[in-house]
Design a binder for these strands. Structure first.
Lengths: 303, 303
DNA sequence: GATCAATATGAGATTAGCTCATGTATATCG
DNA sequence: CGATATACATGAGCTAATCTCATATTGATC
């Protein structure tokens, strides 16, 4: 026999109630069971935990040490059990978000700020490092929501639309193309394209325009931060393609212009992907609601 | 089913080894047993601890919390088990000592100092508060040794002689009795007796002399500290009776004299009482040995 | 898409722990 | 000080949880 939680509980109960019979009552079992249990651990430990010489059983020196351990350990287990009932009830949860779209941080952050107030017990985080395989990370439960604009048919994953956006062309105000009403694939030939440092398959402009048209820019410069991209664009170091709301969110500047891509413009839809099993959870639903609300503000350029 | 240590161990082992089969190997059980176990807790908790979607089983968010608890709790149990093997081997023990004789602290303290060096793992203490029922406290395992000069025939308690001593009469050098060769019971009549604040049945002078002779001193003044008793005696505020070695231990002063009680002197024997079951334990034996050694020094007045 | 490795599942066996009945020891009260 | 009550110990049999063995199923890999 090994030390088990029941032994800790028994020793504590006997000490607290001052008797085996009372302890048995407290633990909803019989006096006999506890007596056997005590005998069991004492044999196992090789030391008596109680002094038999006195009638309301009293802890021996060793028993006092055992009790101390019980009083240290039992609350931790109780806390663990509590926590899991809360987890099961959905009151404690994790909301780790993978963002494929690099710029999404900008609108996501205010969403999370609001969310935190409503769900203080939920552990919130954004994981930009998983951009390469956000949906995979979602499947592996490394995250709980993935923000993506590429809905795939994957078993157990659901995509909920958040908002539509248009990738727009951005160039310096004095750029040759700045005067155009819109740009096309061929216009990228010979240009230096400034883009987020992710695989080109994840970049809207390649996926929707350049790859189908087999157009390759003269160069691609990888830049992490949206503000820096715009700065470089304004400085004439290249052109870029960003979601319309990103361009709108940064304060309007005379240094660069934003143009539609193709005559009718490109349209993309952003989704929040979650595991099917989680979709019904209130905090997940709440998050999506907040995200859509924030998206509406984005469309109005109020963010 | 409740959370048990086995569940904590299993989750940790699966995480550590990265697989149920390997964990089963580590825990000396079968893959099947662990699989059933996991299913068991997950049902109990209402939350999956592992992600089935991936093949070397991976912890879910809830599982990570569970693991954290396991890693907090398991070492504590391990420590408890370790400690008890040490207790069983007698390497860890308690040596709490009840002293009936108030003055005993003076020779006991150096004994304990030595003892501590030899048995650093033993929890040492002196409990003067138990003077009234030192032997009872020993029985109840409130202490492990009782220093007493009244050996009783009690089942399960053994008395080992430490040293003999003589209660001696102490008076100021200019006290009328100071010139006597010895004092007798009648000499206490009309005196103020300065004594330790314990029941008179525990005071040698009452037990051995005054009670049998039906002599009552004029007054009894209760004083706790030996040094204060001697000071008061020297100041002529009363007389006292102390063990010879106590008087010898304090530096010889011209202010007071020590006289035998009765012509042949009184003799008492001091014992170390222990529970029979403990007598064989090496640290108990060692303590007694040290105590006797110290007692020899006392007799020579070297303490 | 076939094969391999890893985990899940079901049925039966095992064993740990429990209950019931009763024995024994310690307190308590007259 | 002895009788009675109270508290704990013990033994036998039972229950149920956990394990093992065999096999199915599922996810990974090439």
């Amino acid at each position: 026999m090994y030390i088990e939680f029941r032994h800790l509980r028994t020793v504590k109960a006997i000490h607290d109630t001052g008797g085996v019979a009372r302890a048995a009552d407290l633990l909803n079992t019989t006096q006999s069971a506890l007596s056997h249990q005590i005998k069991g651990i004492e044999d196992q430990l090789g030391v008596p935990l109680f002094v038999r010489r006195s009638r309301p059983l009293k802890l021996s020196a060793a028993g006092q040490r055992f009790l101390a351990a019980a009083e240290a350990i039992l609350p931790q287990v109780a806390a663990l059990e509590d926590e899991f009932t809360q987890i099961a009830e959905g009151r404690i949860a994790r909301l780790h978000i993978a963002i494929e779209c690099h710029a999404c941080f900008e609108w996501l952050f205010p969403v999370l700020e609001q969310f935190r107030k409503a769900w203080p017990e939920v552990d919130v985080d954004i994981r930009p490092g998983l951009a390469f395989d956000a949906i995979g990370a979602l499947s592996r439960e490394e995250v709980d929501v993935a923000i993506s604009s590429d809905p795939e048919k994957i078993d157990g994953i659901e995509f909920a639309p958040l908002f539509d956006y248009s990738p727009v062309f951005v160039a310096a105000a004095n750029h040759p193309l700045a005067a155009r009403a819109f740009v096309e694939a061929e216009d990228f030939r010979g240009q230096t394209l400034i883009a987020y440092p992710v695989d080109r398959s994840r970049l809207d402009i390649f996926k929707l325009l350049l790859a189908p048209a087999h157009v390759e820019p003269a160069a691609i410069r990888r830049v992490e931060l949206t503000a820096v991209i715009l700065m470089l664009v304004a400085a004439g170091r290249g052109v870029s393609v960003l979601p319309d709301w990103v361009v709108r969110a940064v304060r309007k500047s005379a240094d660069y212009v934003a143009l539609p891509i193709t005559e009718q413009g490109l349209t993309r839809r952003m989704y929040a992907a979650t595991r099917s099993e989680d979709t019904a959870q209130p905090h997940i639903a709440h998050f999506k609601r907040l995200a859509r609300q924030e998206a509406v503000k984005l469309q109005r350029g109020q963010a």
